[in-house]
Design a protein around this nucleic acid. Structure first.
Lengths: 344, 344
DNA sequence: TTGAAAGCGATACCAT
DNA sequence: ATGGTATCGCTTTCAA
């Protein structure tokens, strides 16, 4: 269309104003100014000029002038993990609705790194910060993190956590305890009595809560938790954990509860690789209901969390736009599938 | 620590300078200025003041002053899809190394929306823009998109695509054609002759290339492609596609090639739901090698793409820092698993 | 309503 | 080396 390859700077509001023959102020008001008080003719001239020059407002400049950005910062443990990527998808979708921009960072499950990232992200002066990376109980960095977030809040920022945080901030409550308890109860009702658990390192809040809930459910239902292994909170961790159980002798264990679905899926593969059939030789249950679990064999029993919704809620909560419904704990439910058949 | 809950604005460079008893300029130089030429004593004073005030530079302000940001904008089709979330993880990791911040948006596979997002994202004046959302051949929006990206480039921005683009920009070359061709060849060598394909709508470049490559490989190996269905390019699409094949009568088809792994996984579930056993009754192959495919039963034969690396490369390419190795097409390889056993 | 001008927070040029 | 100050692109107060 135009062979112009010179390095031309993007049009500024100034250019638009000049092109339209109006003042900077008028141009600004026509293009953004919430309370419209601009002569329609001028307004049109400005719009035309903007279109002609392909004007796109410089968000950084707007941010410094307005003293507020349109950014939401999102922190997750691992972007490629379906648990987090679904939550992220929800955050991005809701942000989109609000015409906000999402910036994303990954902690790789390192609390130190998390703190560092929060510090860095603060430089963006985001409107809100959403922390979805899993929390660790009693981590030495927690105080510093809290201080950092407090400072962020006191300068007008909003914070929201995903999953019950021990820190005093808004949070999308997941109630892992109740979910795991229901799961355990239903499993005992199916006739299971002897259990093992594959969970994360002690201190990972999510893992601890789920295990505690599961325990409580077993107690109520008359089951016993015979063994616990604590590998990494990942697919490979699940695989290794199950291997460890098998190597140690699975004798008598009827069902293995993995503290999340990716671990459960890994655990099932470990069973198969050991020549055992999940669901038949040993039952398996997980937590989260990530999409994959419908496609493994047999389909996995788990506790469903509406992860996308969790992401959307986290944003609304942070923005202070959550309805009281949305402030209540997220509804979770046990989904029984063939990995835990009724016991004869 | 400090009960101060007043809404205090974050410290500015000004505050730091005053606290340290030096000029704005000196404060700026001590905190950032590449070429250091600041008296060590002053420098220390500034650093101390910054720490005391918990100073964090306002990135927006830096951006307008410097005329350049530290942002990379990433566009994907669907954040929750493992293909994209792994690429995103790679981009974020590499960005992190370069101390860049990633902002992320999802096109939901809508070209119109993609164009719109590129326009919006331009406002951020990102250093680079990475487009990983799948391209559509001959889409009416393509010209507008190209114009938009050209404008972005001519104002100093850098663009990189993932997967061979028909658009004239840098791209991480995936060579879908060659990968699918090798796959088809190896499958014929395993003894398969009669094939069906579950792929995406005509025009989706990735789908088209993979199908074309597969065809070529079959031709060379003496196989025939007997049926093709074109559902959505998603897990559920794969499921439906396979259903359609089954309903239409699978007679004689020995292997179904799905144009990507998530579809393949859905297709396998459709088989099972129809009472058939993947790998035994009908073989299945996919493309991408997403993590899940090791955990389905039987494990899926596919073409491996190092997705994380693809993401990292996309950023390096955009930044102009790619080595010549990194500019070459990404290495892909066929991974034979049990979903395609050797035929007797 | 409109425009002139004073910021917003930071950088960088230009003297000193 | 240091400080004063113009400048970046935009918003918003304040007069007119």
């Amino acid at each position: 269309m135009n062979g112009d390859t010179t390095r031309s700077a993007p049009a500024t509001l100034h250019d638009v104003a000049r092109e339209a023959g109006v003042s900077l102020a008028t141009a600004s008001r026509s293009l953004n100014g919430s309370t419209r008080k601009v002569n329609e003719e001028y307004r049109q001239r400005v719009l035309a000029a903007a279109a002609k020059l392909d004007y796109s407002p410089n968000l950084s400049a707007q941010a410094v002038a307005r003293g507020t950005t349109t950014t939401v910062a999102l922190l997750v443990a691992d972007i490629a993990d379906p648990y987090f990527s679904q939550i992220a998808a929800g955050v991005v979708r809701e942000a989109d609705r609000e015409r906000l921009i999402v910036t994303m960072a990954a902690t790789d499950r390192d609390p130190e790194r998390e703190l560092e990232l929060v510090r860095t992200l603060r430089g963006q002066r985001p409107r809100v910060m959403i922390l979805a990376a899993s929390r660790r109980e009693g981590d030495p960095n927690n105080d510093a993190l809290e201080a950092e977030l407090r400072a962020f809040e006191s300068s007008g920022g909003r914070v929201a956590f995903v999953s019950s945080a021990d820190l005093p901030f808004r949070a999308v409550q997941l109630d892992n305890r109740a979910g795991a308890e229901s799961l355990a109860r239903e499993l005992t009702e199916l006739g299971y009595r002897r259990f093992a658990a594959v969970t994360g390192a002690e201190g990972i809040r999510t893992a601890d809560e789920r295990l505690a809930g599961f325990r409580a459910g077993l107690e109520a239902g008359g089951g016993t938790l015979e063994r616990i292994v604590r590998p990494a909170f990942t697919r490979d961790g699940g695989y290794e954990g199950m291997r460890e159980l098998i190597d140690g002798g699975l004798d008598g264990v009827e069902l293995v509860f993995a503290a999340n679905d990716v671990m459960a899926v890994g655990a099932m593969s470990a069973l198969r690789d050991a020549g055992l059939t999940p669901g038949t030789d040993v039952a398996v249950a997980g937590y989260d209901d990530i999409p994959t679990v419908r496609d493994v064999t047999p389909p996995l029993t788990t506790v469903r969390i509406p992860l996308e919704e969790v992401g959307r809620r986290a944003l609304r909560l942070a923005l202070g736009e959550a309805t009281s419904d949305e402030e209540a704990p997220v509804h979770t439910e046990v989904v029984l599938r063939e990995s835990t058949p009724r016991r004869a």
